[in-house]
Design a protein around this nucleic acid. Sequence first.
DNA 1: GTCTATAGGAAGATAGAC
DNA 2: GTCTATCTTCCTATAGAC
Lengths: 190, 190
Amino acid sequence: MGRAQAIDDDELLARLTTTFREVGYEAASLSLLADAAGLKKASLYHRFPGGKEEMAQAVLQSAADSLDVQVLHVLEGEGPPERRVAQALDALKRFYAGGKQACLLNMLAAGHIASNAFTPMITTMFDRLTRSFARVARDAGQGEGQARMAARRAVMLLQGSLVMVRGTGDSSLFDEALEMIRSSLLGEGE
Amino acid sequence: MGRAQAIDDDELLARLTTTFREVGYEAASLSLLADAAGLKKASLYHRFPGGKEEMAQAVLQSAADSLDVQVLHVLEGEGPPERRVAQALDALKRFYAGGKQACLLNMLAAGHIASNAFTPMITTMFDRLTRSFARVARDAGQGEGQARMAARRAVMLLQGSLVMVRGTGDSSLFDEALEMIRSSLLGEGE
DNA sequence: GTCTATAGGAAGATAGAC
DNA sequence: GTCTATCTTCCTATAGAC
């Protein structure tokens, strides 16, 4: 077989992910992505013949898979709702590095090309997250309508806090948002 | 005096604003901005010698001024809190075109250059909006700590709903967010 | 104040050696 | 699988006529 890969597929994807999350799609130039990966541009094209758009798609798909396993599956799993929510919030805290890492769903939604190319998966992910939140809220005793509303509020708080943290630099806002999400899903303060 | 301007200063700023809000800073190329303005690139440089960065700064400042007059001033004005909140939410609904127009504070926070250049004003705007929300929440009878938290939640819901609308295409989420913000600020559901 | 034309550079992408 | 070198296109920005 040929020469070994200079960098593991998973590690490569992780580094590209970080870059896209930090600067967004348009500002993530191939030079920047190559530097982050520790590879030259031509090597990136060997792994992703479709170029930057394919990289972003792969990154988005990978994030979707992670969210699936670490958050959605937990929310829809067995056990008391309080426990499921706590576990999912822990996963989200890790997923967003305590609020310091932006959400791809927001960062990849900008730009002309980007918008059209990534919108389907972005829409799907918002939908799946909202459904899972609603599911656990219903299991926690909230009515159908209330549960759906609590779920949408949870997604808003999650996304909004990430935007706020990025704008203010105060990552404690993210922790506060997680607490609000917990209250919303478990139907406290009604 | 010389030849008349092909386009009014206010109208020019409005068109640049729309472009930045739609595609973000990096994707807003001078060609795109020039087309939106109905001018050639060289003409844009005549109005904004500092180039794209100066355009974005002007757009951001203009948005800050609008928010000041139409929202912050109203929130901190006279009259019953319910009325002030209602008026401010109406202004926000217009400001964000019913959720269909993104927030500059989010769209200009991406990218490397962008980040450093616009961060001061973005931070300030988040701070001012949060303070004004907290002020009206306190006037509505909430305690200092509760009012501050309600204010941060309001900003999160506002920003988060705009992200969600952009990702899902469902602008009714924005209206729902405005209702949640009203409840949060006026201390309902406690 | 607006335009045409163009400079100078960085972007995305490819060819081909090793 | 990774590299150097290169191509082409688009970008930001400027010069100078009208």
